[in-house]
Design a binder for these strands. Structure first.
Lengths: 218, 218
DNA sequence: AGTGGCCCCTAACAGTGTTAGGGGCCGCGA
DNA sequence: TCGCGGCCCCTAACACTGTTAGGGGCCACT
């Protein structure tokens, strides 16, 4: 746990430690003291390298997107755009609570910018207007972030405590089916359709619709 | 502030108080003690009516969507679908930090269900498959939540503290323009397009693309 | 009159982010 | 070689958080 002073304490080292704590304890359990303990230091020492806890979260957001790999430049723009979305989602699902960390945070780290740069390059050379390319990129990130955030959300406080690993979709089915059919005919009728499709196909559905809509612009 | 005991303390009254505190102090400033003070009680008293702070947040989420008004049933399904998205966004922008509250929370309150029910009704009668209708509804909420979350996010911790009311987009322009053009040619070239369009047209862009993509299914 | 449940209280616990101030240690200038 | 200043980490404390334990009024019912 607490190792002998790792020579000197750097921002990168703090970010890496924070990432480990995040993985182990989740976003709610991420505290200054735990991050400090992870690097074998005291909480107050972090403030020499970092202004805030907020700044640690910024570092975390950057570190999470750090190991993003841009899709290969094969196929048409559509396939590449889809693949961008899929990989972004996979990235957010890979690290614990990654979506919550990234969600309300507009990172301007160099690696994030590099990915954005690459994405804009492909969209422009595909024939999109400058304005359309910019908005298409924004659209994709908004959708993916929103989707993963819902995907990882527990159904309710009670269910979260009770069902353990049971994610929202599973429990939601029981809720829908238990509704009075006279008040919510469609919800009851579509209970299976609202719940059954796993998150992968649900995500893919939205992604395809967005790509279709963009294709109509060309 | 603290008024004489408002007769009895109910969950609805707690939800209303929490909503006022949220408006005044933001999500980060919402604490049990402040909500209790708002209803003229002590913090521990809340736990008789509510299990958790998490449960208060659930109530908040429901209260926020409570005053949603479904769009009129005029025009084709497309116009109604668009209007659904616009009103949902307006709702999240109306109350402070509403997007953050609603984001990771799958509410099953009666009013939320009623809106969902109505939405599914329109999509089905427009000719969508049951599965498509369910997914189209999911898609819309994912997009809107993701968009508003980004829309309300400060650029970074430093900017948040410094710029005051300055939202992300404004400050982001300076960041993009200041980049080395040899490393990020597209980002520099598209700086205006990435920043200039106000959030309304940016939102509308994504909304129209999604609607276009859905229309192709019919 | 007594009893039980509802509802709210005080007090405390462990843990949070953050700041003030102290003190080693290292390299630079005299 | 001495002193000095900056870097870096420490201890201690502040005000605050969510949450629980236990006490005690008050009201309705027996």
């Amino acid at each position: 746990m607490a190792q002998p002073p790792s020579r000197t304490l750097t921002r990168e080292c703090i970010a890496a430690a924070a990432l480990r704590v995040l993985e182990r304890e989740g976003l709610a359990g991420l505290s200054m003291r735990k991050v400090a303990a992870e690097v074998g230091a005291q909480a107050a020492s972090l403030y020499w390298h970092v202004r805030n806890k907020e700044e640690i979260l910024d570092l975390l957001g950057d570190a999470i997107i750090a190991d993003a790999e841009v899709p290969p430049r094969t196929g048409d723009w559509r396939e590449q755009y889809l693949e961008y979305g899929r990989r972004y989602r996979a990235l957010l699902l890979a690290k614990r609570d990654a979506a919550k960390v990234v969600a309300g945070r507009l990172s301007t780290g160099p690696r994030v910018l590099a990915v954005l740069e690459d994405q804009l390059d492909r969209l422009r050379s595909a024939g999109f207007t400058d304005a359309d390319a910019a908005m298409a990129s924004y659209l994709l990130s908004a959708y993916v972030q929103g989707f993963v955030l819902q995907e990882q959300s527990p159904l309710s406080a009670a269910e979260a405590a009770g069902a353990g690993r049971g994610r929202a979709a599973r429990a939601a089915g029981d809720v829908f089916r238990a509704l009075p059919a006279e008040d919510y005919p469609h919800l009851v009728a579509l209970a299976d359709d609202l719940v059954d499709p796993d998150m992968d196909t649900r995500f893919e559905f939205g992604l395809q619709r967005i790509a279709d809509g963009l294709a109509a612009l060309l």
